[in-house]
Design a protein around this nucleic acid. Sequence first.
DNA 1: CACAATAGTATCGTATACGATCTTGACATC
DNA 2: GATGTCAAGATCGTATACGATACTATTGTG
Lengths: 228, 228
Amino acid sequence: MDTQATRSDAIYYSLRRAIIEQALLPGMKLPEDAIGDQFGVSRTSVRNALVRLNAEGLVDIRPNRGAAVAEPTLEEALDIFSLRRCLEREVVGRLCRSITESELAELEAHVAEEEKAMDTSGPLSMRLAGEFHILLAELTGSKPLVRYVSEIVSRCSLILALYSRPHSGKCGVDEHLQLIDALRKGDPETAMHVMEHHLGAVQDRAQIRDPGEAPDIRSILSEYARTA
Amino acid sequence: MDTQATRSDAIYYSLRRAIIEQALLPGMKLPEDAIGDQFGVSRTSVRNALVRLNAEGLVDIRPNRGAAVAEPTLEEALDIFSLRRCLEREVVGRLCRSITESELAELEAHVAEEEKAMDTSGPLSMRLAGEFHILLAELTGSKPLVRYVSEIVSRCSLILALYSRPHSGKCGVDEHLQLIDALRKGDPETAMHVMEHHLGAVQDRAQIRDPGEAPDIRSILSEYARTA
DNA sequence: CACAATAGTATCGTATACGATCTTGACATC
DNA sequence: GATGTCAAGATCGTATACGATACTATTGTG
């Protein structure tokens, strides 16, 4: 996982992480040259990565006008959250009748990491919060489901970047623990209800916020180029 | 819609259609050179298209070993159908409280086309059957939902190509009409039930089939190169 | 002074080229 | 006869180059 098979992959994962951690904010332009320079690769590899990010809705590509971090409208944001509910209900439903104690332990370990990261910087804890949901999806063993949940969760990060206020400290750790408890009991009704409540809470953080000015893309990506 | 903005787009849509209409069967190799030759473009544009198709699960790309039409395992197939139920339930639920009479007419017009195509070749009627579901998603007005349903429906075509028998004549036209009736009544319960039943019927066509031999990719694509 | 035309720059879309990796088939060896 | 080795060909990943398109700032005109 340290070095990817291809350079395109490396760029893809780096950009993805940069977007999810909100280092690259919605609306920010993503010029192929600048990114290529920063990562030390040609435009070809960058384009490949951008195409993929576009396919999963994290990046908008307008012909001959370049790529930019997607800016979901408020309307799209509501759709996406609605879809997320739909998908995560499916996840919870499947897990209730299949989850094992060791998998529950895995989830608890993840939440422990979340708690540890709560003190430190926002980006990490934001990413971990999302990855909890992706981990849930992975435990279903359904690759397509993982793909969709990953995608949706990423886009929700984007939405929170656009519409949420600075964001509250806890970031849902308690709710994650509640969910684990519900899964352990194996009762779909309560589990789904907890999930529903949790997602509602996440969504409720959405609120208008002004975009602010655009800093230099190279300085932002210098952090991400190292770990590519 | 006749000519796409970029060549990559043209290739993308052509390949996509070829896969959905089962001209390109699961497992078939997709060499960049051969496709580029056939469409009269360079590998660059073909690659771009293949990356996109890979992102939506229609094509597998293995590093340094080329692309091939995806071959969902039986297990993945079940997952995908389960996901499809989940998504289309969402679609139907939304439509029940928003659909207008003119939209219903639009659906009926589409089914009329399906009926007309029933006599002709399989590929067309198979594509139309899928597009009915995509049209449903479009009527929700939710772009993300359309994207996901399109993706899932395409992959279901792939699955039917792999696992279904020659395929029955009606192909669900009656069920589509039933669904429209249910939507007109605006009752979510019956509508979802009808949808559930319909998808169950589609899924039940799944059955093992042997892959057969691989014909020349150029001759298959000559048909699709014209309309690119 | 406001606004349209235009030249210059930045950025993208695509083709081509080259090295790297994988596949295939022949040959040698056990 | 089975298996391992290696060379030739096929195919891919990536860099680079060039024409096309969109953006920007300057200049000229009403």
